[in-house]
Design a binder for these strands. Sequence first.
DNA 1: AGACTGGAATGCAACGATGTAATCTGCAGT
DNA 2: ACTGCAGATTACATCGTTGCATTCCAGTCT
Lengths: 332, 332
Amino acid sequence: MRATVRDVASWAGVSPKTVSNVLNGTVNVRPATRARVEAAMVALDYVPNLSARGLRNGRTGMIAIALSDLQVPFFAEMMHHFVNAAAARGLQVQVEETGWDPGREARLLSRAREHQVDGLILNPVNHETTAVKPGIALPPVVLIGEVYLPIVDMVWMDNAAAIADLTGELITTGHRRIALLGMSDHPAAIARLDGYRQALRSAGIPTDPGLEIASDDWRPTSAARALNAFLDSDPGPVDAVVCCTDGAAMGALLALHAHGLRVPEDVSVTGYDNINDSAITVPPLTTIDFDKAYVADTAIALLMQRIADPEGSPRKVTLPHRLVWRSSTTSR
Amino acid sequence: MRATVRDVASWAGVSPKTVSNVLNGTVNVRPATRARVEAAMVALDYVPNLSARGLRNGRTGMIAIALSDLQVPFFAEMMHHFVNAAAARGLQVQVEETGWDPGREARLLSRAREHQVDGLILNPVNHETTAVKPGIALPPVVLIGEVYLPIVDMVWMDNAAAIADLTGELITTGHRRIALLGMSDHPAAIARLDGYRQALRSAGIPTDPGLEIASDDWRPTSAARALNAFLDSDPGPVDAVVCCTDGAAMGALLALHAHGLRVPEDVSVTGYDNINDSAITVPPLTTIDFDKAYVADTAIALLMQRIADPEGSPRKVTLPHRLVWRSSTTSR
DNA sequence: AGACTGGAATGCAACGATGTAATCTGCAGT
DNA sequence: ACTGCAGATTACATCGTTGCATTCCAGTCT
């Protein structure tokens, strides 16, 4: 049977509370006593029971990370960084997937405490449907992503600015007929579309709805399907395809290849997120990078503060981005 | 404040224990009483406190999944399936990463209980160094992967047989100078090398150590680096590259492209694992598929049985595999 | 009518850790 | 030697749930 504070206490000849004091370090313990207790813990291989501690303290030292779908490399990479950042703070991590389903998202939020987590980091599905609304009792929660909700803490990425930067740079390097791949009514898609249009406008290039290619989601196959249909529709020449994610860009590479178009000689292609795979596609993708480890660490830091002070006013951390130029783009 | 069994009980005019009986359903409760209690639970938005339950029962309803690195798409996809399979059984999932470090693996095993998990599913780093050894006290654990250890439950994949099948088929379709990419002293690499050699031998083709290309790991960049070095060393013609994983195969595509070799016209390329991305590389990869959702579900089922009966003798489930032919290979 | 049966409901205690308040110890100051 | 006091240690109660043993009750049998 597993050792408890009682066992450690009797081995060391002290009371259980003293053992607890040694463990938590909030009260003074005489060095000699501390040494004896520590020896006892080692001798008995004592490991605290977190269920008991959680029951007593109302804190479990566990947080949940809820992303849409771990099969998508971007989310998987984010999860990797969350796991690392949490481990660095001695926190356990529970994984959840929302699968782009607002219902699952709402359930997670309402059931957070049941799942014995102290708080939740969430990549919200959608602005309209998100369960994060004013006036609803929420567990400590930090949002990450593109949708800005001034109700809760969040780590926010300025998608419009990032895509505008990238598109502007494409224009500077001589691209004129630039398509956007991955449009939808998802708020992140809308933000990216905005950035794309802004860049065109400020360069005096007319926007053309025919070049704004919708796709069901940002997975490679969906993007490839969408771009194939676009290319089949005889849209006239296009010298660049700005994709809403690296995954979509990978699909774009596939579709362009199927249509006999060379990247970057005939068409430049860009992605978004700088996932690991974006560096090893053929050709490697020009994309938008941000520091994922920093996002993870910041989100967890915000969450810890929120747990410590549930009443403080919401904070927003804006994330810098950086353009990464690889050989899927070239000057014209 | 959150409602407890006491609150529900007094609302429904019964004792706390009756509420508990309704929740757990082990004892008979009169339908009328049950209805009243259930109404109370709804009215008060009662959610059981899992810490308390865990303390009382010694079970938390939570399992840990420990994989090497979620940044690697294969592990990310496995995690996705684990999360789904666990959710289907009402289990919570804690994520852990071992980072190919036997020390972290050992720590996870010894600290499993501290982390308040009932059991652990582990993809062991290495046969020699794994902390899973006879005579060591272990929490309930199920291994998944290529290394067979008859000490604990496991879901086992016959790598040698799979690679032998694939290589044999390449030989049948006319390939003769077949390289293996991804060799190392990792037991899974050794198993795959074995299968490759077996297939060559049984076709009467002499094995050639010069065609067995080592790489540090199975990530695309490492594989690309290894294959680039190989191709630079003027090894003579090669008509197929059998890669130890899809990730390595993606690296191979990059290296071959850099050397002006066309896939599949000049060289066929194959992968292993059938990760999502393998279908959307240029060209899409021929690979070895297995049912990842089945692995996840089976591993969790084994773990549940092990938790219920810690003493039973270890079981091993062998996983079927299936070849998936895509356009990275062609007949010669 | 009284004894008996078995299902339904309850009271109590315990899981392990820790906050609170009380007690104890050693030592300085008189 | 005695008081006073701060720091160290302890006893007790409690967090929410559930197993055990007990009690309660309606219905059946003699």
